[in-house]
Amino acid sequence: MERDPDVRKASGRMVLWLGALTIGMFGFGFALVPLYNLYCQVVGIQSADQQRALNVQARVDPLGEVQDRWVTVRFDTTVHPSLPWALESNERSLRVRPGEIHEVMFVASNRSSAKVTGQALPTVIPWQANDFFNKTECFCFVKQTLDGGERREMPLRFVVSPALPDGVTSLTLSYNFMHLDG
């Protein structure tokens, strides 16, 4: 079908513009990777997690006076499928007062015959309580290497800070044991 040459030319120019816009938006998608970070820093809106990191300064000395209120601390363990271990704690939950030091034993056993290294990643739920849960000794600080069939008792010593907000009456410490190569 014959077309008016003026229309053809105008159409061609427009296709170029729109094609450039398309490619530009594809690039913009990649540019968003650094841009999101930059934008949040410039405008000053951090994610809840980054804001919490700023609050760390305000964290109160964990070894203040022992308070007369009770907080339930639950323990939860998960072992990644690639790690042939079993993990248990001698306590499923503890009732503690903020300011008191407590110790809980965790037992890891290697169910394979090979030497395996793993490390635990702790998570505190609710996250608002994270800064007020202080581990003074934890097996999660270092890598753990177990020989084939070995069973090891590992201590956790912790204090719930007296600065814990009043609304938090129970929290859960969850360990996720991951497999480390080498």
Binding site: M25, F28, G29, L32
Partner: peptide, 24 residues
Amino acid sequence: ILVVPVLAAGVTMLLFDRHFGTSF
């Protein structure tokens, strides 16, 4: 035109993470 290329960029990054060792 404005948003489909951004999805394409997103899934391309997914593809790179899966096969080409990037960590987007």
